[in-house]
C-alpha cells in the first residue's frame, strides 16, 4: 500500500504578513517558512496509519511538493517525521489550486498510490480547493475535512467536520482525504531523524517533464494589508458594559 502526502511550503503562521508597497504580493524578505500545518497533520496521519495497519504488506509514505527549490526544506520535515520518500516537482511558475491539482494528478499517475492525504487548506492562500480538484480530476471519491480515519468496510471510515456536526462516511480506495485540525497532533521529529532525513535523497522532477498543460484560472491582480480601523474604548466597570449590550 502506498500513501501520497502533499506538502506545501507556507509562511510560518506566527508572523505578521505585510504586503509590498506596490501591492504586487507579500513582502517575503524576512519570512520564515514551515510545512503547512494541515499538511503536517496529513503526514502524521499517514505515519499513524503505517504504525497501526502495517502487516507483511508494507505501507510506503511518499511526500510530494510542487514549487520552488526551497521546498526541499519542508519535504525534509516530512522525511524527518518519518516519510519514506520525497518528490519535488520543481517550478518557479505562479500556480493556482488548479495547476497544482493537475500536477499532483500527474504524480499520482506515476506513483499509483492507494490514498492521497492532503491538508484541507493551505494557510497562505486559504483556498480549500486543491484536494477537491484532484479528486475530481482522478474521479476518485473524496473525504474532506477529516477528523478521524479508520480502515474498515469498503475502505476507509472517515469522520468529517461539517457546519452541522460530525458526518461519518465510508470511502472506497483509492481516495483523496483532506485533513482537518483535529485529526491528530503532529509529532516533532527527533534530532537523529532530522539528521537522517538530511541524507535522504529527494527526487526532483522538472515540472515541464510532467507535461501538465493546465494554465492557472485564478489570477491575483493585487493585494492589500488589512489593518483594523477600530479604536477601543476601555470601560471601567461592568455597568457601562451592560449599557452597551442590553437589548
Amino acid at each position: 500500500m502506498k500513501i501520497l502526502v502533499t506538502c506545501k511550503r507556507v509562511p510560518d503562521t506566527d508572523q505578521k504578513i505585510h504586503v509590498k508597497e506596490d501591492g504586487g504580493g507579500i513582502d517575503d524578505s524576512n519570512l520564515a517558512y514551515v510545512l503547512n500545518p494541515f499538511d503536517a497533520i496529513a503526514v502524521e496521519e499517514a505515519l499513524r496509519i503505517r504504525e497501526e495497519y502495517q502487516t507483511n504488506d508494507e505501507i510506503q509514505i511518499v511526500a510530494v511538493g510542487v514549487g520552488v527549490a526551497d521546498y526541499e526544506s519542508e519535504l525534509r520535515t516530512a522525511l524527518a517525521m518519518g516519510a519514506d520518500r520525497a518528490i519535488l516537482v520543481e517550478s518557479t511558475a505562479i500556480m493556482d489550486p488548479w495547476t497544482v491539482a493537475n500536477t499532483i494528478a500527474a504524480v499520482v499517475a506515476r506513483e499509483s498510490p492507494d490514498l492521497v492525504l492532503m491538508g484541507k487548506q493551505a494557510v497562505d492562500d486559504d483556498a480549500n480547493q486543491t484536494g477537491q480538484f484532484l479528486a475530481a480530476l482522478l474521479q476518485w471519491p473524496q473525504a474532506t475535512f477529516a477528523s478521524n480515519i479508520r480502515f474498515g468496510g469498503l475502505g476507509l471510515q472517515v469522520a468529517r467536520e461539517t457546519d452541522q456536526g460530525i458526518e461519518e462516511i465510508e470511502v472506497p480506495l483509492p481516495a483523496v482525504v483532506t485533513a482537518d485540525l483535529r485529526l491528530n497532533e503532529p509529532r516533532y521529529a527527533s534530532l537523529p531523524s532530522i539528521l537522517k532525513a538530511r541524507k535522504k535523497e529527494i527526487e526532483i522532477i522538472a515540472h515541464a517533464d510532467l507535461q501538465v498543460d493546465a494554465d492557472p484560472k485564478l489570477e491575483v491582480l493585487s493585494m492589500k494589508s488589512e489593518i483594523s480601523q477600530r479604536s477601543c474604548v476601555m470601560l471601567d466597570n461592568v455597568n457601562s458594559l451592560i449599557e452597551i449590550i442590553r437589548p
Binding site: 489550486p97 491539482a101 480549500n128 480547493q129 477537491q132 480538484f133 479528486a135 467536520e161 457546519d163 485564478l218
Partner: peptide, 23 residues
C-alpha cells in the same frame, strides 16, 4: 462558503475546468 460548498462546489468546479474563487 459553507463546509458543504467547500466540499461539493469545489469538486464540481474541478469537474468543469477549475475556475474557482472561494470566500
Amino acid at each position: 462558503a459553507t463546509t458543504y460548498a467547500k466540499d461539493v462546489v469545489a469538486r464540481a468546479a474541478g469537474l468543469c475546468g477549475g475556475s474557482m474563487a472561494s470566500d
